[in-house]
Write a protein that binds this DNA or RNA. Structure first.
Lengths: 351, 351
DNA sequence: CTGAAAGCGCTTACAG
DNA sequence: CTGAAAGCGCTTACAG
């Protein structure tokens, strides 16, 4: 019986029919043997599993997906791979998704406005859920996912009034803690190196930071801001601009993420010969392990990655029915301050 | 006409049949409109594409995969995510695979011996190819892939006599260059911080390094070796052991990868107050961007990632027939020395 | 260039 | 608990 559709030459393709023949059971029985909880006797199951082992049979999940409408694939859209924080995010999602017998289909974005394009591509793969860690997406694309019943969760960002659900660190709270730390250490003038001006993450950290300073009577004029592009190199450039500023050196510098704080520290020390925290105190945000290394010992805010990742995956409702849409559309999770040596003195109380 | 199989509630599922109905053509025509190179008139194609747009139709690649035996998915097995080198590898593979209209299904490994398990899982997804960057796999698993006609390429490792194809950096050559650089700078005693003792990468770099030193009359006794676990922290521990060694400080230290070289530098400087290269010269391997930062300025060997990634994907033969197996089973690609300031003096000639 | 029809490899009501 | 059969949404020979 010649196959009607061409297969790559020399390829052996063992199907449930082959296993059924060897085990002397129906094809349905083979399917049931591989379906947890299916109605099958232990005897039959063992016969099938034996035959499957002999034939090196592995069920074809493409075929089962077609009928179950579940691909067991979760799409992860990654923007900023160069920030080690996102390496840890990828690792955490990989671990959690694999623990649920799914796999990650990764979409790496080169340009900013590629998110919509990535969504169009992942729709073809019939993914069971989408995790978006990158830039903005259009409301049209949100609709494409919703129509198809594909759960979408934003990680560490939110799109107001889009009806999308977002899990994130409580960035404004974190910004406040850093402000408080600087104030207790006696700082009077401040600078920030900011990230993506369109992203909510950087904006919220800045907002919390500034808010707390203003509350404490600091004048807006003594809070400067430089764009750092979220990167080490961008922060280094921002420090050049800060140092060229006639205002002079601020007492305290807030890098909106650890990578930028590290870039700023290296530039302040090696290019301007300054000491930290003696000449200028520095703090970051994220608590990437690199910030704990000997040369940095960076005071920062820990993002509770594992809790954030689990909350994200829970919202995907990979098993069971979709989450009700009455839930709050934004779930900020509070981290904690990690006190190291780039800010002098003792940790202040939470504010 | 009620659907026989349950769909998640509130979900709209548009198929080629719906598009065909709206466009007034057959379902075959819809399929052809979305198949590049298919036999279809421009008029019909436009009618179909119009209807598809109105209905937000996206072809279901699960269904097409079932019949074409191509999932358009490439499996990438990643081990050491904490080494920034592999972040760049992931990014390069993502870029190249997406440029070929495929996506990466990522398998992150926590433990060492999970590779075989990952292979079993990816077989279900009917991937078009497998890229393995992690630890060893059994020859049985190699056979599983070969039987199914799934191309498998090892990235930066090889398994002798397994019949598997590997693309890698010419690690022995790189090790020789570092040895030569140290020798020209006047070093007489040497130490290495090594990586995974089972991996070929570390072994080959060590072998090339030692070989060149021996050639130049260096005695084996003046070449020490410490295990560094391929990590920053492992290298830091290795330096502790090296400094406790009664042999005293060597003239030159080779970190088998940049991450370890950086861990060693930080520990030598901040914990032992040593200067680099005045007290001890250091070199690494990989040329990760972090090694070029101000505090490190690390002399190293660049791995030609882009060439390696392209060679890997070419060997997958995603389009066209599978590669002949007469090809050499191991393709070492030569990098180049990146000369910075952790080794004194001028760059030596290649050896 | 076009349509009707078979079939990819499974899951799952249905009827024993 | 079990098997025969329908069907998931496509691609592709086949016959016009």
């Amino acid at each position: 019986m010649p196959k009607k559709y061409k297969l790559p030459a020399g390829t052996i393709r063992t199907t449930s029919l082959d296993v059924a023949a060897l085990a002397g059971v129906s094809q349905s029985a083979v399917s049931r043997a591989f379906t947890p909880g299916a109605s099958i006797s232990p005897t039959t199951r063992d016969k099938v599993l034996d035959a499957a082992r002999k034939l090196n049979y592995v069920p074809n999940s493409i075929a089962s997906s077609l009928i179950t409408h579940r691909s067991n694939i979760v799409a992860l859209i990654l923007g900023d791979l160069h920030n080690p924080f996102y390496t840890h995010v990828l690792e955490a999602f990989g671990r959690e998704v694999q623990a649920r017998d799914r796999q990650l289909l990764v979409f790496t974005l080169n340009d900013e406005q590629e998110t919509d394009d990535a969504i169009m591509r992942l729709l073809r793969y019939q993914v069971d859920g989408v995790i978006l860690t990158s830039a903005q997406m259009s409301t049209q694309m949100v609709g494409m996912c919703q129509n198809r019943g594909i759960p979408l969760v934003l990680f560490n960002r939110y799109i107001p009034q889009s009806g999308t659900f977002g899990v994130r660190c409580d960035n404004a709270w974190g910004g406040r803690q850093i402000a408080e730390a600087f104030l207790r250490a006696g700082a009077k003038s401040f600078a920030m190196i900011t990230g993506d001006p369109k992203g909510t993450t950087s904006k919220d950290r800045v907002a919390g930071f500034v808010e707390r300073l203003i509350e404490s009577g600091v004048s807006r004029a003594s809070i400067r801001s430089y764009e750092g592009d979220s990167t080490y190199e961008g922060a280094s450039d921002a420090v050049q601009r800060m140092m060229a500023d006639p205002e002079g050196l601020p007492d305290a510098l807030f890098g909106i993420n650890d990578t930028m704080a590290m870039g700023a520290m290296d530039t302040l020390r090696h290019q301007f010969g300054l000491s930290i925290p003696e000449d200028i105190m520095v703090a970051g945000f994220d608590d990437i392990p690199e910030g704990a290394r000997l040369p940095y010992q960076l005071t920062t805010v820990r993002q509770p990655i594992n809790r954030m990742v689990r909350a994200t995956i829970d919202h995907l409702s990979l098993d069971g029915p979709a989450q009700s849409t009455d839930l709050p559309h934004d779930l900020p999770i509070r981290g904690r301050v990690v006190w190291r040596s780039t800010v002098p003195g003792d940790p202040p109380a939470e504010v």
